[in-house]
C-alpha cells in the first residue's frame, strides 16, 4: 500500500517533522460530564501538527467528535488532558491571531447588523480606526467575491453569500490561522465548489494556515495538503494522509485525476472501517 499505516494514537507522521508548527496538538483527550455517571469520552487521544501555510482537513465518521476537536483547537473548549499549542504558546483562551468560521452562517452572523457592520465588529474590538476599518472591510469583502452588498442585511442574501460574509468577517483582522467547522455543509453543491475554490484562493493570497473539519472526503482531498483521519468515537488518529496533488487545483481536472481517485478510496476505506 502506498500509504504507511500509522497505528492509532501514534503521535508522529513523517511530514509533521517540519520546522516549528503553527498548531501543535499533543495527546488531547476530551471527556464530557467528568466524574458524573453519564461521563462520556469524546476524544481518546489525538496528536498532530500543522505547519505554517499548510491546509489540513480533519475527517472522520459521523459522531467522531469532529466539532469537539475543532473547539479544542480553537481554545473555546479546554481539553481534559493533553495540550494544544498555537504559535508556541499553550492555549488558554481563543488566541488573538486565530479566527473561526462556524458551520451555520445563519447562527454565527448577527442578523441585526448589515454586512459592513458584521465585518466591522472584530475590527472595532481590535480598536482599528474608522478610516482603516472601512478600507479593510472593502478589501476583505472584495477578497471573498462580494461587491456591493455591504449595506444589505445577511438575511437578504443567499446562503452562499452569507457564508462568504462569515469568511470575510473571520479574515477581517488578518489572522494567521483559520479554523473552519464544516463551513460548506449548509450550501448547495454548486455554491460549495465555488466556496472551496474561494477558500483556496484566499489562502494563496493571504498565506494563512487553514484547518478545516468536514465529513466530506472529496472535499478534504480537494482542499488539503494533509488529511487527518479520525476513528469513530472516542476518537483517535486513524491515519494522517499526505495529499500529493499539485496546485492550483481545479474542480474538473484535480477531481478526475488518478491520484485523487486513489486517495479518495483510501480515505473512504479508512472512514468506513474506522
Amino acid at each position: 500500500m502506498a500509504y504507511p499505516e500509522v497505528s492509532p494514537g501514534s503521535t508522529t507522521a513523517a511530514t509533521a517533522a517540519a520546522t516549528a508548527p503553527v498548531l501543535s496538538v499533543r495527546n488531547v483527550e476530551k471527556a464530557y460530564n467528568v466524574g458524573r455517571p453519564d461521563e462520556k469520552l469524546a476524544i481518546a487521544d489525538v496528536s498532530f501538527d500543522v505547519a505554517k501555510g499548510e491546509f489540513v482537513c480533519v475527517v472522520g465518521p459521523s459522531g467522531a467528535g469532529k466539532t469537539t476537536i475543532l473547539r479544542c483547537l480553537s481554545g473555546l473548549l479546554p481539553p481534559t488532558s493533553g495540550e494544544v499549542r498555537f504559535e508556541g504558546a499553550r492555549l488558554q483562551d481563543v488566541p488573538d491571531r486565530l479566527s473561526v468560521v462556524f458551520q451555520d452562517y445563519s447562527r454565527s452572523l448577527f442578523p441585526w447588523l448589515t454586512v459592513n457592520k458584521n465585518v466591522a465588529v472584530p475590527l472595532k474590538v481590535a480598536g482599528v480606526r474608522k478610516q482603516e476599518r472601512e478600507d479593510r472591510i472593502r478589501t476583505v469583502l472584495h477578497a471573498v467575491g462580494l461587491g456591493d452588498v455591504g449595506t444589505s442585511y445577511p438575511w437578504q442574501l443567499s446562503g452562499g453569500m452569507q457564508q462568504r460574509v462569515a469568511i470575510a468577517r473571520a479574515l477581517a483582522h488578518q489572522p494567521d490561522m483559520l479554523l473552519m467547522d464544516e463551513p460548506f455543509a449548509s450550501v448547495d453543491a454548486q455554491t460549495r465548489f465555488d466556496l472551496e475554490d474561494l477558500i483556496l484562493e484566499v489562502r494563496r493570497q493571504l498565506d494563512i494556515t487553514v484547518v478545516l473539519v468536514t465529513h466530506d472526503i472529496d472535499e478534504a482531498v480537494y482542499l488539503s495538503d494533509r488529511v487527518v483521519v479520525l476513528s469513530g468515537a472516542p476518537s483517535r488518529i486513524a491515519e494522517i494522509v499526505d495529499v500529493p496533488l499539485g496546485r492550483p487545483r481545479n474542480q474538473l481536472t484535480t477531481r478526475s485525476s488518478e491520484t485523487f481517485g486513489r486517495l479518495r478510496s483510501h480515505l473512504m476505506q479508512l472512514v468506513t472501517t474506522a
Binding site: 473555546l76 481563543v94 486565530l98 474590538v125
Partner: peptide, 25 residues
Amino acid sequence: PIKLDTARVMHMSALRTVRTVVLPG
C-alpha cells in the same frame, strides 16, 4: 450559543458582548 462563541472568538469584552450580541439578540 454559537453567537456567544463568535463573540469569544472575536475577543469581545463582557460589556461589548452584551451591547453587540446579547441585547440585540
